[in-house]
């Protein structure tokens, strides 16, 4: 419940994944674009957003497939060079979705796959975030997922805050009006 109003959590739950209906369902034909009647047949494959798939899974109406961003192709790419994989275009909420979807599907390797991906991307990209803060538009920026982006921005903002403080002059400069008067009267 603590994340009930979290906008990122809400957007993340909108990610689509394929499910198989274990039972036939009447009156929900709009879920399946290929349905000719207003009915989803047993065993049909339908793309559903995660929040709906999760609820149906809890009622044992569907079985959830691995979302496309955790497929074999992505895994191979991550293993080859984690830092260069464009995870944002695949799923901006890669890690969060992975955490939520892992208990639903029988695949137990997702957890360690997420950890592996995060660890390597952290090592290659994020650990340099503090000094990268001042390079002009780093090339890896559009590859980061939401979570990585937040980390990166945390590093950037604290570093810019510090630089601002360091080069900023005296904070009592507003009194320069007074200074001018004094100088002119001298």
């Amino acid at each position: 419940m603590s994340r009930y109003f979290d906008i990122d959590d809400i957007i993340m739950e909108d990610e689509h994944s394929a499910v198989f209906f274990k039972v036939g369902a009447n009156g929900v034909g709009l879920l399946d674009p290929s349905a000719e009647t207003n009915r989803v047949e047993q065993g049909s494959r339908v793309e559903l957003p995660f929040w709906l798939a999760n609820e149906l899974y809890l009622r044992q109406a569907v079985s959830v497939n691995v979302p496309p961003c955790f497929n074999l192709k992505t895994r191979r790419e991550i293993q080859a060079d984690a830092a260069c994989v464009d995870l944002r275009s695949r799923c901006p909420y890669f890690y969060e979705l992975g955490c939520k979807v892992a208990p639903l599907i029988g695949d137990r390797t997702i957890g360690s796959f997420l950890l592996y991906a995060f660890m390597n991307r952290f090592k290659d990209i994020l650990s340099k975030a503090h000094s990268a803060a001042f390079a002009v538009a780093p090339r890896f920026l559009p590859l980061l997922t939401k979570e990585e982006m937040q980390l990166y921005e945390a590093a950037c903002s604290s570093m810019t805050g510090f630089k601002k403080w360091r080069v900023g002059g005296s904070r009592f400069e507003k009194a320069s009006i007074l200074g001018k008067k004094k100088r002119s009267s001298e």
Partner: peptide, 28 residues
Amino acid sequence: AMEVNIVRPFFVRALQAFAKHDSPQMIH
């Protein structure tokens, strides 16, 4: 103090992220 303060936000979040992904629920 200043050095700690600069890295704190990044550091805390990074450790949190690692803790989350390494939790026993995720790694079987």
